[in-house]
Amino acid sequence: MASKIVVGYDGSEAAERALDFAMSRADLSGNSLVIAHVLEWSPYSFLTPSEVEERHRRRTEEMQRAETAILAPLTARIRAAGIEVETLIRYGHTAETMCRIATEQDAAMIVIGRTGHSGFAARLFGSVAGTLAQVAPVPVVIVP
């Protein structure tokens, strides 16, 4: 049964490694890929009046930029490798949004790269990979 692999992709080197791994898996098993690009966003942050006014325009711009600069070239590359792919751009808390996408897409697994930081900041705030490992509804592959 062909199912979907969700890949968290933000254009970083770690994401690139995750994508390579996911592509090799998809190639072997005939799975399709869902590339998820999450823009970190909290509905509980504070904005100034002019930020409120510009928010809709900014959001449109941000999504267009993500589509043309990051996702469009990627899709072409993956399709060229003969793998079926769809892309998603979402706003929200990265780990939570990845989980929601995995559920919505009925995905077989989530593949995500890790940056390998073990510093104070990661301990304090947690990392996306670490959070996913704990709360994801499907198996998670963390690519080093």
């Binding site: 823009l39 966003w41 509905p43 509980y44 942050s45 504070f46 904005l47 409120v52 928010r55 809709h56 959001r59 941000e62 999504m63 979402r90 706003y91 929200g92």
Partner: peptide, 9 residues
């Protein structure tokens, strides 16, 4: 998500 939320308004 990404639009101004009620909380932000």
């Amino acid at each position: 998500a990404g639009e101004v939320s009620h909380f932000q308004a």
